[in-house]
């Protein structure tokens, strides 16, 4: 058994991270889970939330906001196919709140269900992000 977990975070535009960590907390669709070395193989969709990368056990985690995606744990390690990632430091809460309000209006004005579903998806990640930043 290895004592570090190999992980990769890939966005459509590029390979973001390819390194080793002691533990990674992933915001799975059915609840957060912590990926440790030699975790059983699994696959899970990710809800908008924060991925926490603990490089050393008990250290301060590196926090990365993920808009959604897929996490796959294979014997080779953890792969996160992220839709889009944001560094939490870059977020402007006022700006975000305005965008949330705008999107809420858009949902009201949506022409059909398909359009509404698109806006609702946008809203979901923005609300999740606002929640995390505010706390």
């Amino acid at each position: 058994m290895t004592d570090t977990l190999h992980y990769e975070i890939v966005s459509p535009e590029r390979l973001l991270k390819d390194a080793e960590a002691a533990m990674i907390v992933v915001p799975g669709a059915d609840g957060d889970f912590a990926a440790l070395p030699a975790h059983a193989p699994m696959m899970s969709t990710i809800r908008p939330g924060v991925v926490e990368i603990f490089e050393t056990e008990g250290g301060t985690p590196e926090r990365l906001f993920v808009k959604g995606g897929l996490a796959q744990i294979s014997p080779a390690g953890l792969t996160i196919l992220a839709e889009e990632t944001l560094s939490l430091d870059d977020v402007d809460l006022d700006d975000l709140n305005k965008k949330i309000a705008d999107t809420r209006e858009d949902i009201e004005d949506a022409k059909d269900d398909v359009e509404r579903a698109g806006f609702e998806k946008e809203l979901a990640w923005m609300v999740a992000l606002a929640d995390i930043v505010a706390h």
């Binding site: 799975g28 669709a29 059915d30 193989p41 699994m42 899970s44 897929l70 014997p75 080779a76």
Partner: peptide, 16 residues
């Protein structure tokens, strides 16, 4: 393709 292991799916295959 999936590394030859039996996977747990969350929520399930269809949803993913």
């Amino acid at each position: 393709e999936l590394g030859g292991a039996a996977y747990d799916y969350e929520p399930d295959e269809t949803a993913i």
